[in-house]
C-alpha cells in the first residue's frame, strides 16, 4: 500500500428540488491509498452512491458539490470544467455500475464499446484498439474473446456483461476504480468470480478501489478499510478487522446483526427498528437517534463529535465520547 491516491475533504453535495436545497452528502471526508480497497456501506438512500458520483463528477443535473474539495493525486478535481473532467473520467478514474445491462448500450457491439475509451483517451487506431480490447476481455476471463467482441450485450449472460463492464472500466489503466454494487444483481457463484477478479486486478494494476455495497459479506471479502454512512453522514470508519471485530457505532452493530449468518444456526437476527429518514427531514443532534436504542438526551440535541478509537478507527457517537 503506497501513497495517497484520493482525498475527499468535507464535501457537501446538495440537490435542488421543489422543497429547496437538500443535502444528500453532509460533510464527508475520507482518503484512499493506491492498492487499497475502501468499502462504503449503508442502507439505500444513505448517500453512498452520491458520494461516489461526486468523486467521478457524474452527479445528476440538479446535484452539486456545494463545499469541500476532492483531490486526485494531489490535484483538485471537484471544480474542473466539464471537458477536463471528461478526460479524467474513464481514463484515470472509472466506474462499474450495478446493472451492466443498463450501463452497456444494447445497439452497439461489445467491441465498439470497449474500443471507444481506448480510441478517445489513448488515441489508438481502430485495429490497435480491437487488439487491445481482445486482450482486455481475455484478462477479465471471457472465453473466446475474438468471437465475443463482435457480439451485442444481450447475447451475454449477466456475469459476462459485468466482466465486459470491468474490461471497459479497466481499458485505460485507471488509478481509481469505483464499483457501485457491482455484484448485487448476480448469483452467488458468479458474485464470487467477479469479486475474485476485482481483487486480482487490483493487486496486479495497483489500483485504488472504492466499492459501494450494502452486503456485509462482500465487505468482509474485499475491503481493507470500511466507511459506514448513515443519512448522508459518515458515522464510523476503520480497518475491516476493526469494523467487524470491534464495531463501535450502534448503527454499524445493527447492520452486522441484521445479516443472517450461514455458519451459525443459532444466530438471532436483531433488526434495526424503523427506516432511514428522508432527505428533507429536520433532525437535531445525532442523525441516528430516532432508531438507536441507546439514545439519550444529548443524542437528541447535540451532534456527536468524531472520536478516535485508534489511529485508523474513528466513530461519531456520544457513547464513545463519554467513554473517552
Amino acid at each position: 500500500m503506497g501513497e495517497t491516491l484520493l482525498e475527499v475533504k468535507n464535501i457537501v453535495t446538495e440537490f435542488r428540488t421543489a422543497d429547496g436545497q437538500l443535502p444528500a452528502v453532509r460533510d464527508v471526508s475520507f482518503s484512499l491509498k493506491k492498492g487499497e480497497t475502501l468499502c462504503i456501506v449503508g442502507e439505500s438512500g444513505c448517500g453512498k452512491s452520491i458520494t461516489s458520483l461526486s468523486v467521478i463528477g457524474l452527479l445528476p443535473s440538479n446535484g452539486k458539490i456545494t463545499s469541500g474539495e476532492i483531490l486526485y493525486e494531489g490535484a483538485p478535481i471537484h471544480n474542473l470544467p466539464a471537458e477536463k473532467m471528461r478526460q479524467i473520467r474513464g481514463n484515470k478514474i472509472s466506474m462499474i455500475f450495478q446493472e451492466p445491462m443498463t450501463a452497456l448500450n444494447p445497439v452497439l457491439t461489445i467491441g465498439f464499446q470497449i474500443r471507444e475509451p481506448l480510441m478517445l483517451h489513448h488515441k489508438l487506431s481502430k485495429s490497435e484498439a480491437t487488439k487491445q480490447g481482445i486482450e482486455l476481455l481475455k484478462q477479465v476471463g471471457i472465453p473466446y474473446p475474438e468471437k465475443r467482441i463482435d457480439q451485442y450485450p444481450h447475447e451475454l449472460s449477466g456475469g459476462m456483461r459485468q466482466r465486459v463492464m470491468i474490461a471497459i472500466a479497466l481499458s485505460c489503466n485507471p488509478g481509481l476504480l469505483i464499483a457501485d454494487e457491482p455484484t448485487t444483481a448476480l448469483d452467488v457463484t458468479i458474485q464470487a468470480q467477479i469479486l475474485d477478479l476485482i481483487n486480482d486486478l487490483k493487486d496486479k494494476l495497483n489500483m485504488g478501489v472504492m466499492m459501494i455495497t450494502h452486503d456485509m459479506g462482500v465487505v468482509a471479502e474485499v475491503a481493507d478499510r470500511v466507511m459506514v454512512m448513515y443519512a448522508g453522514k459518515k458515522v464510523e470508519e476503520g480497518l475491516v478487522e476493526e469494523i467487524f471485530n470491534n464495531p463501535k457505532h450502534p448503527y454499524t452493530i445493527g447492520l452486522l446483526n441484521s445479516v443472517p449468518n450461514v455458519d451459525d444456526p443459532d444466530f438471532e437476527l436483531e433488526p434495526i427498528p424503523g427506516s432511514l429518514p428522508s432527505l428533507n427531514e429536520q433532525i437535531t443532534g445525532c442523525r441516528f437517534h430516532a432508531r438507536c436504542k441507546f439514545a439519550s438526551d444529548i443524542c437528541r440535541n447535540k451532534e456527536p463529535q468524531v472520536v478516535s478509537v485508534s489511529d485508523t478507527h474513528k466513530v461519531s457517537c456520544w457513547l464513545e465520547t463519554e467513554v473517552h
Binding site: 457463484t189 464470487a192 471479502e221
Partner: peptide, 25 residues
C-alpha cells in the same frame, strides 16, 4: 458444496479456502 462455499461471509476471522465454480448456468 460450491454454493455454500461461494457465499461471502460477514466475518473477517474465518478466511477459508473457497471452491470457485467456473462458467455460467
Amino acid at each position: 458444496q460450491a454454493l455454500l462455499s461461494a457465499i461471502p461471509r460477514p466475518s473477517v476471522n474465518a478466511k477459508r479456502k473457497r471452491v470457485r465454480l467456473q462458467g455460467d448456468l
